[in-house]
Write a protein that binds this DNA or RNA. Structure first.
Lengths: 219, 219
DNA sequence: TAATGTATGTGAAAGTTATCACTTTCACTT
DNA sequence: AAGTGAAAGTGATAACTTTCACATACATTA
């Protein structure tokens, strides 16, 4: 019943898989060996039936009446998500957000290797953040030629996003994580682009708060 | 046909409304007065039929054969999302991510007013970032008593998220934007919590890249 | 003022995703 | 070794979202 192709996996499931993965890593670090879908549910804030449905989409990883072996499930998820091979990452724009991401504890645990960060600020070129060297943006092209980078993270000012993105063609980069508010489009479909708009979150919370309060009044 | 209650609005629509809003703000700043759904589509990367369907959920804002009046549509979206009244915001944890958010250009444009940021770092207490004063976390309780804060943004280390969140009860706060990898739950339903996990994004992109490449090979 | 082009709005259908009740299987107990 | 409890897996159903084809109405032009 195991599905080895993983075609047509909805993004909703993928996002949750990432949550399960972190949750399993945390559980593993406490010495726990088995975990129930109801435990994952509590830890991730996702219903247990959804957890099970998601996992059965890829295979049968559990032991009925007992739960899931944490190590086994974790490595299965890693395989599914492509986390079992190291991904080489660069970051472009070492401002506050960029620096925050370089220091983010979650990244190192998931087989992502930051090779370098790029910026234009003379005072930081040559230094390093969390052992990742900061290079001048002028060196980007040459760096991409001599290194097999798979992912680029964009944390430059929005108005520069397009220009920088155009420099990422014709190299080994397959994915772009765009934290600028510019919407980048993968015109030729050569890479996968993920746009993340942080300021959107505040607007969404504004609406949801309004809704929450209204619903409460009605009750 | 106008729906004034806005109950049961799917979150998918809310997220897109925020995108439309930014897009309209940008368009307005160029002096443009009318915009078509196909224009919004290009700018936001969302299909024109979806744009129209989303908007009709709340009313009829367009002029057939012409498009949408930017000012009118923008203020309608602001009303729908609760952006027409100023929201008072505090930020807890003025590290790199916190600083990045305080400096984020998108926030100020959407009627969010940062009153203060809180931290424990002696060297930054008393200073300010982007005109937002940094106070010691010890002052949080008193501050919340004397200020009508609606939203708290959490950018503290994950292990401290729970502790800090527990201090936000019994005050005017209605929404929490949680950037730590801890999953906070609104146990009593008193506020709306939005968990944002940045490291999840890298894992998701890892899977999607894998899928993209596979699909390409098949073609 | 009538005709025409254009873009919105609408309702049904298709496609996704989540839910629920139920079955299956394993491990543990006695 | 049989029985019991507990949790995974399953398939049908329901709920939600997106898509599509088409109807509608506005504005502009002749």
């Amino acid at each position: 019943m195991r599905n080895n192709s993983f075609d047509n996996v909805p993004e909703s499931i993928v996002g949750r898989l990432a949550s399960y993965h972190r949750c399993l890593k945390n559980a593993a670090s406490t010495g726990q060996t088995v975990i129930k879908s109801s435990d994952i549910s509590k830890l991730c804030g996702i219903k247990a039936t959804v957890v099970r449905k998601d996992l059965t989409h890829f295979g049968e990883f559990g032991i009925k009446g007992k739960g899931y072996n944490i190590i086994t499930l974790s490595s299965n998820i890693e395989e599914i998500m492509g986390l079992n091979t190291e991904k080489k990452v660069i970051l472009i724009g070492a401002g506050n957000l960029g620096t925050a991401l370089l220091k983010y504890p979650g990244f190192s645990g998931a087989n992502f290797k930051f090779l370098a960060a790029f910026d234009i600020g003379a005072e930081i070129i040559g230094t390093s953040i969390n052992s990742v060297p900061i290079l001048h943006i002028d060196k980007l092209g040459a760096f991409l030629k001599s290194n097999e980078v798979q992912i680029a993270i964009l944390t430059v000012p929005s108005q520069e996003a397009e220009t920088i993105a155009s420099q990422l063609h014709n190299c080994s980069i397959k994915g772009i994580l765009n934290f600028t508010s510019a919407i980048l489009k993968s015109d030729d479909g050569k890479f996968y682009i993920r746009n993340i708009d942080l300021s959107k979150e505040l607007e969404v919370i504004s609406f949801c708060m309004k809704k929450c309060l209204k619903n409460k009044e009605e009750k």
